[in-house]
Design a protein around this nucleic acid. Structure first.
Lengths: 339, 339
DNA sequence: ATTACAAGTGTAATCGTTTTCATAAACTGA
DNA sequence: TCAGTTTATGAAAACGATTACACTTGTAAT
């Protein structure tokens, strides 16, 4: 690759002049400017970002590091899309690290990204006490958390109101007359899971319906465990009349089992899912679901990050986005007017 | 951040010695080595990758650039996952550019990634004559194409056998007795679309069924156009008894319309989709579909890229992966034994 | 005692930029 | 005509690392 020196020699000027032409800093004669520009084109010269970055210490990359627990989950894909779309307008690209719920992998991605000098991080941290994240902040990196925050509120964060979302879902089921309501939750290691379980309990308690431990099942946040746990619930001596699934993958697993066992939705068993997905409406019957917009989370997080980059010392923001209950046909329509 | 000089001063040695300790090159006294290492830890010193890269001209990043047309499409998410999983083992991270079928955006991402000195690119190019991609190859970048290749076979490429996949799908419908078969294809600008249409035609011709132009509809590869075009087909004077949808998003759109119009699958209209998705089995009835493994494409592409990085001048590979017809219940079961 | 060699270390050049400072030439105004 | 100013340019220092080379010791071989 041609460098400044090559261009300078060919244009018969000093490298300083070439640099001035490129960066439009300082006076340059019009004719030399023209000459230099021709040579640049001729040699297809592109300044070395590496050298620039070394020289201009503050010259960060045009990369934003996005570190997520599970790219297989379409929810996080929406987050990616949200971030990408917003950040793109400012000329940034997104680097993605998928750590598959593995904290070690998360740490390594943070390391790699840091050494690639990303301008900032958007992270859904594996734990609320992530040492590496704290270290990053201390050393002046910009970090925004999504979906899950740091315990000590040391970063900007964009969260969903999971508890309320779950409450509304279960409340909806209760209003339709259901009393035997089960929840298939995701991994208990994830804060959001516990928030959703809490919302579920709150709704039951609000209607004086006893919380039955057998109706609260969880393993991990995969489709497979959705299949298994639904089987377990349906085979139990007193099966629930309604199931609330903790995320979109679990919902798919539950659907699989319900169809296999020949039960009808919503007459034999009602289903309501956390996560509204593109396929929710295509189901038969269309799925009633709690919508959380990954796209919006992504966008907000990106906004916060860009702000933080501009104003490193601004107040720390904590955004809690509302979920939306999308009522379709998977819970039946028998109305009642409790609550 | 501390640099070599700081460490050297504090450890009372020259920067050369510090460098030697870090890189374990050259002789260093055990006690000085120990001293230097302590200081490094104390100051939390990390070598500047930027400076290293400038110095060691060949020192590339640990990033692989992945440039895709539509991250909203779960198929490409599978590709990402495939790449990520394989490449991760070799200590690389993945940078993702989502160009939303916009060639300009694609070019810009290629530029950004190049200036971030990625070790290699995996691209699903917007067009088979992409100038920028060719330029990259000329300047020594490693490029592997996925899903769509370069016209002149100038890069390694991993493709699906779309024509055969479509053929088998339509053949399946014909064997079940269908004669009025429509195809809702994706954007005609994408090579894969045309391959799938070709496979569709081949199957009809193979059974001496006339190809009816009215049954071949296409717009773009979105859910929305799936909705619209299905409406169009079902309202036509002689509606098809079976629909073959060109990708997973179109399938969702078609399902939406079919359910809305109260028709039963497969009795009123059979449906077969290109792309088997996690939700295919959760549908009611479960969807018969042509499976193409994005994950496998991703993995293979990553393999090729890593090989190419090691052996820049090896022979160019063209991998064509087979699709798999997953027969479920969305096409009915009336057997016939033509063909 | 002298030479030869190895071990341990430091000096300085280098990678490709940007930018400060110096300087020569050209212009200004009395 | 000459001081003062502006314009156009170049030389050289930095950014933070690596590394070839030179240098000082100490030790072994003669």
């Amino acid at each position: 690759m041609a460098n400044l020196k090559d261009v300078a020699k060919k244009a018969e000027v000093s490298i300083a002049t070439v640099s001035r032409v490129i960066n439009k800093t300082g006076k340059v004669d019009t004719t030399t400017e023209y000459r230099v520009n021709s040579v640049i084109k001729e040699l297809n010269y592109k300044p070395s970002t590496v050298a620039q970055r070394l020289r201009n210490q503050n010259n960060k990359s045009r990369l934003i590091g996005l570190i997520l627990p599970d790219i297989q989950n379409p929810f996080y894909v929406d987050v990616i899309q949200g971030v990408e779309e917003l950040v793109w307008k400012e000329g940034y690209a997104v680097v993605i690290g998928n750590f598959s719920q593995d904290e070690k992998k998360e740490q390594l991605y943070l390391d790699i990204f840091q050494s690639e000098s990303v301008v900032g991080f958007i992270v859904a941290p594996a734990s609320g006490t992530d040492k590496k994240v704290k270290e990053l902040i201390k050393t002046g990196s910009r970090v925004v958390c999504v979906d899950r925050g740091m315990n000590d509120d040391s970063t900007d964060v964009v969260l969903m109101d999971n508890e309320k979302g779950a409450f509304e879902a279960v409340n909806h089921l209760i209003k339709l007359g259901h009393r035997k309501i089960a929840i298939i939750a995701g991994s208990k290691n994830i804060p959001t899971t516990n928030q959703r379980i809490q919302g579920y309990k709150n709704a039951l308690e609000c209607h004086n319906i006893p919380v039955v431990d057998d109706y609260i099942v969880s393993k991990d946040s995969t489709q497979k465990s959705g299949v298994k746990l639904t089987e377990y619930l349906l085979k139990s001596p007193d099966p629930p009349t309604a199931i609330f699934t903790g995320n979109n993958l679990i919902t798919l697993g539950a659907l699989e089992t319900i169809h296999k066992s020949g039960l009808k939705i919503p007459d034999d068993v009602a289903l309501i899912g956390f996560d509204d997905m593109p396929w929710s409406y295509a189901l038969n019957p269309p799925l009633t679901a709690v919508r959380q917009s990954g796209f919006e989370i992504g966008q907000r997080a990106a906004e916060l990050l860009l702000q933080r980059i501009q104003k490193p010392d601004g107040a720390i923001a904590k955004l809690i986005l509302k979920t939306q209950l999308i009522i379709r046909q998977s819970c039946g329509a028998k109305q009642s007017n409790l609550c």
